[in-house]
Design a protein around this nucleic acid. Structure first.
Length: 617
RNA sequence: GGCUCUGUAGCUCAACUGGAUAGAGCACUUGACUACGAAUCAAGAGGUUUCAGGUUCGAAUCCUGACAGAGUCACCA
């Protein structure tokens, strides 16, 4: 296709403006949109903005333009005018030729290779506890954005940085050492990342017990009397004092910190324990990632990167982007960018979080030469990334203009925010088990997969359950904080993953019945398109452009909504029209190919979301 | 308190980035399987787009000011 319809129509309108009114309209003046479904036509020109140029009423302009376009453009077969809206009807032959070519191929919609690399970071868990619902949203967003960028034409590298060090994992380690009695995931039969997480929880429990007991001591009472505000309840004070207690008074806290210091010093026994427990966690993560259907090209470990960034600090100092304080600490003054002063190096020469991220960004650039990097991280870190990007920009890093924080809203439950301390966190593994369980129940009420082996049936059930879960999460725009109701996530009817899968299954079922080698050459004789057919074809036509748009906006929810709309139109078409028993052979052949095209795009779109589509369900 | 984000049907979400009568699903009511698959389709009901001003041919969308919720404001990660 040399030119797209929007291009043809836009330049057609420009030509018309010159011919009819002797004015030059730039493409910017011309607003072209898809026609709302209650009107006839596929594209609409809005003529209100043209009144100034043409000095006529909107509906008169629309009539003039309509006549001109219908006469001059083969692609336009008819038009109608409603107020300032010119609705253009695209020639059925144009649609027919389009349908029988482009979307018959499975790779329809994929963009030209751009020869540019994008690094996408997502998931990036801590290794002290298993993955939960929050990670699931992150992972689905990261994965589908990666797929989307890939389809749009970029070379994508999927990475995560694993927070494998620090005080948190030390808590798990300490708890296991003190209370574990040599137990292992194997000896207990607990999934290995959960096993480690259980010790983290155990540490918190023991710590709270210790804290509560300590509060009764004379020392604690003295501190309470000295420091609490006059009208403050004791319980409120202790709540706020917890961190300080951990750092300055707690025996368990001291031991955990001791362990962290020994780890940093490279203490052999601590490192050995650390490796053992992390290995358990990774084995568990791998299983969860596998079930979610995601993978990574490269893993970065914080234990390897937490010292990075010092050379970036040197660079910043030498170019006067950073400054040194009297005590030796280093900071950047970002106040002119409406950010505050940001410290990058403590007086003792140790680096902090943002410094590490500077180094990691550079490391990735060296690894992949990517000029675009996407960080999929929750919106609670908006400020951090604004600072990070500003710093990299001032350091004049070559990839600084291609940095993007794919910020997403946190996931709430109907009961409110998830809190690990209150045990309201929805575990990723449990969640998947639950949706697959529901899919199995729903499947048992039907008999559509009779005759398949048990393994095949189980695989289909898995695909359906996962589709329900994934679609439910990914259909929501990233930046929106979302309420996750487990009951709704297992719905299989309406605006859901299984609904879309079902549409795909139908497109395949009709071909099974027709025979894969069915002769469809008569389709070229098909003349009149029914509205349901036009809708479907126009929608297919929009797919390639949608991929580019969704990729540029890093927004997979656009694809999800599109898949739903396409499936909806397919279902309606299916209901209203007979395919194999259509009136003419041309209609049968045409509709079969329409089914194949829709099936291709549904499968392609769902795959971009990380959702598989079964052949039967 | 400063900054950022969010506020749309009972609930969960859309609205092509300023366009037509604000749309879907769930839940509720009612119809459609002897049909290529009913995980479907069709119909009904449900709205002062948080509120008040402003900008213009035209506002859920942009501006100002309230109100409500969330996040963030470390030499933590």
């Amino acid at each position: 296709m040399a030119h797209s319809l929007p291009e043809i129509l836009t330049s057609g309108v420009q030509a018309a403006l010159t011919a009819l009114y002797d004015v030059d309209g730039s493409a910017q003046d011309i607003t072209l949109q898809t026609t709302r479904k209650e009107f006839e036509g596929e594209f609409t020109v809005v003529t209100f903005p043209l009144t100034r140029l043409a000095r006529k009423k909107p509906d008169e302009i629309a009539g003039d333009l309509g006549n001109y376009l219908k006469e001059k453009l083969a692609e336009v077969s008819d038009f109608n005018v409603i107020k300032g809206f010119l609705n253009l009807v695209i020639a059925p032959t144009y649609w027919r030729d389009f349908l029988l070519n482009g979307p018959q191929k499975a790779d329809f919609g994929r963009g030209e290779r751009k020869g540019e690399t994008v690094v996408v970071e997502f998931s990036s868990p801590n290794t002290n506890k298993p993955l939960h619902l929050g990670h699931v949203r992150n992972i689905l967003l990261g994965w589908s954005s990666s797929q989307l960028l890939e389809a749009a034409g970029y070379d994508v590298k999927k990475v995560q940085i694993i927070n494998d060090r620090g005080i948190a994992i030390c808590k798990s380690m300490l708890a296991w050492e003190r209370f574990g009695e040599g137990a292992t995931p194997e000896s207990t039969g607990v999934k290995s990342d959960h096993f480690v997480g259980d010790f983290y929880v155990l540490f918190e429990k023991k710590f709270r017990e210790e804290y509560a007991a300590w509060q009764e001591s004379a020392e604690a009472q003295r501190i309470l009397q000295e420091k609490k505000k006059a009208d403050q309840e004791a319980s409120a004070f202790w709540k706020g004092f917890k961190n300080q207690y951990f750092n300055e008074h707690s025996k368990l806290g001291a031991e955990a910190q001791q362990m962290l210091l020994r780890w940093e010093a490279g203490d052999e026994s601590v490192v050995k324990l650390w490796k053992k427990m992390n290995a358990w966690v990774y084995a568990g993560f791998d299983e969860t990632y596998d079930r979610l259907g995601v993978s990574f090209d490269k893993l970065y470990y914080e234990s390897n990167t937490y010292l990075l960034g010092k050379d970036m600090v040197d660079k910043g100092l030498s170019t006067d982007v950073f400054q040194k304080r009297d005590d030796g600490s280093v900071f950047a003054d970002l106040t002119d960018a409406k950010l505050s002063e940001k410290t990058l190096m403590r007086a003792d020469g140790t680096s902090i979080y943002v410094t590490q991220d500077l180094g990691t960004a550079r490391l990735r650039y060296d690894d992949f030469g990517a000029k675009r990097m996407v960080y999929v991280v929750a919106d609670e870190q908006n400020h951090h990334f604004r600072t990070l990007f500003e710093l990299l920009k001032r350091l004049e890093e070559p990839y600084a203009d291609g940095l993007f924080h794919l910020s997403y809203g946190m996931v709430d439950l109907p009961s409110g925010r998830m809190k690990s301390r209150e045990g309201t966190v929805v575990d990723a593994d449990d969640l998947m088990n639950e949706v697959i369980h529901e899919a199995r129940l729903a499947s048992q009420e039907r008999s559509a997969t009779e005759g398949l082996s048990e393994a095949e049936q189980e695989d289909i059930i898995r695909q359906i359950g996962m589709a329900a879960l994934k679609f439910h999460i990914i259909k929501v725009g990233p930046q929106k904080r979302m309420v996750f109701d487990p009951k709704e996530s297992v719905d299989m009817q309406g605006q859901t993953g299984p609904y879309v899968q079902n549409a795909y299954v139908r497109t395949q079922a009709v071909w099974r019945k027709a025979g894969a080698d069915r002769d469809v050459s008569a389709a070229g004789d098909y003349r009149d398109l029914a509205p349901a057919e036009r809708d479907l074809i126009a929608q297919l036509y929009a797919y390639p452009n949608l991929i580019q748009e969704a990729a540029e906006q890093y927004d997979p929810s656009l694809i999800a909504m599109y898949c739903y709309e396409l499936a909806k139109n397919l279902h309606k078409f299916w209901h209203d029209h007979s395919i194999l028993n259509a009136e003419t052979e041309a209609a049968v052949a045409f509709r079969l190919q329409l089914c194949r095209a829709v099936g291709n795009v549904l499968k392609s779109g769902m795959l971009l979301l990380g959702i598989e589509v079964p052949e039967r369900m």
